[in-house]
Design a protein around this nucleic acid. Structure first.
Lengths: 325, 325
DNA sequence: GGTATGGGGCGATACGTTTCTTCGTAAAGC
DNA sequence: GCTTTACGAAGAAACGTATCGCCCCATACC
């Protein structure tokens, strides 16, 4: 069932079969059709491994993110990551690639056993060792989230500062005077978001009210939400997915009504349809990261046709939780 | 940077390098260590493509499902599928494999360009052509959901009939007399679920009240939910993810209070924490499917050590929506 | 002294493609 | 009639690994 068998059955050489099936070389249509017909009849499928070995291209893209647990996706940002993966997968397929989700580290050396044409690294650490290893091997890397000092071929990211300002402006316009911030210090874009919040407060001359917690510590979010409400804000902004539930629970415990006594807005994909949410649009991030990466792969050598960096817009969905009646 | 360079640098043959790195052959530890040290120093990584070509094993598993749209995942069951994929990915990695999510059909021939050691097909159609093609190529296939007449190496599935009975019993015990069923006729396990419902009704001697819709048609769910409530049930069971939202909206439109006027239960992963939900436990399904598949791959030739079929248990989470006050 | 025995190591082949180069032949140009 | 051009097709060399079988050299044994 190799190309050899097809060649023999069609009465031509291996070269001719390869050319006929790949649309290369200069062959009369008669030969091309004949070879294709024979190949179809034999049910011939070229070996992906052999092709990869010969051409150096596997048609496979890697996607990884820093793992907080043994799970391949971090639970705190599950919806965000799931949507990013979904979109990246779809885009990759459109462009003729398949996507493999891999952990940054694993008991088995999965990275060594898979031939990757390129990799998307979501939220790389500063000077990410994985990225360096991939680049050393000649695998193009595009990062989701600003790569810091890690040298990559391109990246996509939200404008976290602008996004935070947008939400804060909205809350202020809805009547908030003391806006608190709840942030997971190990969440993606956390430092950017917090900095944006502080800058906004400084601009307005109001004191910042922030509480942070470690998302990986169970119960930390709940405790931080309680601490934040103890500081009597009249509006709160949850910087990370999952904050909404914690804040709502804390408000209920204090018999604070939302939005009457407390305005609420939260980052995330709006799992709760009553909570004003700022979507980071992970679908766009995933799709654009793949497009960037494929551009790099296919223009290898040539200058970058696509910009090496794209800013993913955010979208604010105003719901009941931040609308004064 | 091939194995040749390592051999030259270490002053040994290619064979010795291969044996030393793979722990095969009979070499003194001194040689083994020396070779490994040299390989590390050179930063040598064996070519996955070459290894795959030689050994016939890629360490890659495919995962596919029948696509209703151009998207790789169907939106109506997104949470279910996302969780299944997440769990399957994690399990595969634990066992030393990577997972590739592929659509059943695609503009590019992705299936031909990826070397797969095995494939999980979620909800195959009867006599699925993709499954037959894979089996013809010698790729083991395990299915998620009963494979019907399609010959596969194994499968995992819920006991849909028992699950439906469990929910209906719960609703009846909570006081329901006229229980309606809302089902997506093109959803997974739909026919099984509907059959289970009808059987349960027959057992009890009550007339079935069912409405079906096509999940792929926008607005169909909403309309079907309305039709169902027109038939004045005092409890409804939504057989598919997303039914909950439709039914809640329809109830609100009729000023029916849940659970006072209408008991509600729904399949799904419980996105709405107030709705009684029957989880199909996609995480278990994904993990078990991978375990089954890897078992088949690694015991190729030997008899199946693991059972070829596993039934995934369901879990009923009783919430407010089906609890009479 | 001859021959088992076993440790240590290497040569060569196969995996199945793609592609570079070459080759023959027939038509066309002068 | 001889050279150019174009066409159609094939030969053969990679790509980088794993592995079968073989060889060589000590040491030990009878």
């Amino acid at each position: 069932m190799g190309i050899r068998d097809v060649a023999a059955a069609a009465g031509v050489s291996i070269t001719t079969v390869s050319d006929a099936l790949n649309g290369k070389g200069r062959l009369p249509d008669t030969t091309r059709l004949h070879v294709r017909e024979v190949a179809d009849r034999l049910g011939y499928r070229p070996s992906a491994a052999a092709r990869t070995l010969r051409t150096g291209r596997s048609g496979l893209l890697g996607l990884t993110t820093t793992m907080r647990s043994t799970e391949p996706f971090a639970l705190t940002e599950f919806a965000w990551f799931a949507e990013l993966v979904r979109s990246a997968t779809a885009t990759a397929l459109d462009l003729g690639y398949a996507l493999v989700v891999l952990p940054a580290s694993s008991p088995h050396d999965v990275w060594g056993n898979v031939a990757l044409d390129g990799t998307i690294v979501v939220d790389p650490t500063d000077d990410d060792p994985l990225v360096h290893e991939l680049l050393r091997r000649g695998v193009p890397v595009v990062s989701g989230g600003h790569p810091g000092s890690t040298p990559v071929y391109g990246w996509v990211d939200n404008d976290h500062v602008a996004a935070v300002r947008c939400v804060l402006d909205h809350l202020a316009q809805a009547g908030a005077g003391r806006i608190g911030l709840l942030a997971a210090s190990d969440g993606p874009g956390a430092s950017k978001g917090i900095a944006g919040y502080r800058a906004w407060c400084a601009d307005r001359g109001v004191p910042p009210i922030t509480e942070e917690y470690e998302a990986r510590t169970p119960g930390a979010g709940r405790a931080a939400a309680a601490r934040l409400l103890d500081r009597t804000p009249d509006a709160v902004f949850g910087l990370h997915e999952g904050c909404a539930a914690e804040l709502l629970a804390a408000a209920r415990a204090r018999e604070l009504r939302v939005p009457d006594d407390l305005l609420l807005a939260c980052c995330g994909e709006g799992a709760d349809p009553s909570v004003t949410s700022l979507s980071l649009q992970p679908a766009l991030a995933g799709a654009w990261a793949v497009e960037l990466l494929v551009g790099v792969i296919e223009d290898a050598g040539a200058g970058p046709l696509l910009p090496a960096q794209r800013t993913v817009p955010t979208r604010l969905s105003v719901r009941d939780s931040s609308t004064r009646r």
